[in-house]
């Protein structure tokens, strides 16, 4: 389970949209292998009857009233944008459509 290959790292980088260089992949793969080996110790610790904890504090049903709250102005929203046009975020051409 702990083996992680160069190809896998490249695939994960692709999923995570990081343009890793060959050198970075070479460096990362063995580091991740070491970390994963250390982590593998938990594989047999918990049996299936142990419920998972996703939230440290057991709250439920935290809801908001359906009432409009003031948000940001378009100027504030766009202030940090790398590029804008016509009060919109300008982004490079998008490939494909979902």
């Amino acid at each position: 389970m702990s083996d992680i290959t160069r190809d896998e790292v490249a695939h994960l980088a692709d999923l995570a949209r990081i343009d890793l260089s060959e050198a970075e992949i070479d460096k990362l793969a063995p580091q991740l292998a070491v970390i994963l080996e250390a982590i593998d110790s938990i594989a047999d610790v918990a049996t299936d009857d142990i419920p998972p904890t996703s939230h440290a504090v057991p709250l439920t049903n935290v809801f908001r009233e359906d009432v409009v709250r003031p948000g940001l102005t378009a100027e504030q929203a766009l202030a940090g944008a790398p590029a804008t046009e016509d009060q919109r975020f300008l982004v490079p051409r998008i490939l494909g459509e979902d």
Partner: peptide, 15 residues
Amino acid sequence: GCPAAFGGEPNTHVC
């Protein structure tokens, strides 16, 4: 709490 109304000037129903 931003308005869910259709349309509006671009990027004005945002937070």
